[in-house]
């Protein structure tokens, strides 16, 4: 049943997503042309420069709009499918609550990852078109590989593989966390508000986000000095394993928060749902 739920969630979210993605790629080419105008050594007419500025602004706004549209597609699907009249059909399907939630979560993570991938492609396209001399400079690429990449491999050794795996896991967990966080805000907004549910959800998001940011800033204020002092005192040969351990602690922390958010979300869908 999860596969069937995913089929319809994907259909709904990606129905217009691919148009926005293609548009952002087209705008990346335009943005690349703007970069080439700005970095050109030739004296170009003012009209061309003004046009390049306008195109650059449109390209940046277009790429931003594409990211925003992905957010809108994912979370409007979550809201409409569960908390509007569509919920009368969704919640009476012969599926488990966890399958409903997992389908929405997987769709959100896939949409976010694909959007990130397209944005990366956009940047590469813009740089290829705008700065071909730098981007396709074999000498520059070779020196980057020698000076930076090989140096990292020499310093970290086997731990590089561990760092990459931990980074991947962290990436997935952060994706799960961001989706669950917004799902919870939407769910709480839908439960407590009779009208203006979306506005309530947005308000809850900003309050919760502000509290979270405040806590992080307190840590940064008092914790960073202590942590950096401690790190400075570590012996060089212990730095790699300790860094891997710190990343693991981060993974466990985010994993715990994700578990708590998932449990809260599941409980609200199971016990607190009241479609009017």
């Amino acid at each position: 049943m999860l596969r069937k739920l995913l089929k319809y969630d994907f259909k709904a979210v990606f129905r217009y997503w691919w148009i926005a993605a293609l548009s952002s790629v087209a705008l990346a080419f335009a943005g690349g042309w703007s970069i080439s105008v700005f970095t050109s050594e030739k004296a170009l007419p003012t009209a061309v420069i003004v046009l390049a500025i306008l195109v650059a602004i449109i390209a940046v706004l277009g790429v931003f709009a594409f990211s925003l549209l992905t957010v809108i597609f994912v979370y409007s699907r979550f809201y409409k499918n569960l908390f509007t009249d569509e919920g009368y059909l969704t919640f009476t399907l012969p599926v488990k609550r966890s399958q409903l939630l997992n389908s929405k979560l997987i769709t959100g993570i896939v949409a976010g990852s694909l959007t990130g991938f397209v944005l990366l492609i956009d940047v590469i396209i813009a740089l290829c078109v705008g700065l071909p001399d730098i981007f396709f400079n074999a000498e520059l690429i070779r020196s980057f590989i020698d000076e930076v990449a090989l140096e990292i491999i020499r310093e970290t050794g086997f731990y590089l593989v561990i760092y990459i795996l931990e980074a991947l896991l962290l990436f997935i967990l952060v994706g799960i966390f961001s989706n669950l966080f917004i799902f919870c805000c939407i769910t709480i907004g839908s439960i407590i508000a009779k009208k203006a549910k979306i506005i309530t959800a947005i308000a809850i998001y900003y309050v919760a986000n502000s509290v979270f940011t405040f806590v992080i800033q307190i840590f940064m204020l008092f914790g960073v000095d202590a942590v950096t002092g401690w790190i400075a005192g570590i012996e060089e040969n212990l730095f790699c394993p300790i860094f891997a351990l710190i990343m693991l602690c981060g993974i466990l922390f985010i994993g715990t928060v994700c578990t708590m958010l998932y449990s809260l979300q599941y409980w609200m869908l199971d016990r607190k749902l009241n479609l009017a």
Binding site: K4, A12, K80, N81, E86, T92, P94, V95
Partner: peptide, 29 residues
């Protein structure tokens, strides 16, 4: 839920769908 066929007093399907898509949806689940 697999044994129950429920008709609420409100329209509950997504207006973005066609009738045939809705039929496929019910057939799927």
């Amino acid at each position: 839920k697999a044994l129950i066929s429920y008709l609420p007093e409100r329209t509950y399907f997504s207006s973005n769908m066609r009738v045939s898509e809705l039929v496929d949806y019910f057939e799927d689940f």
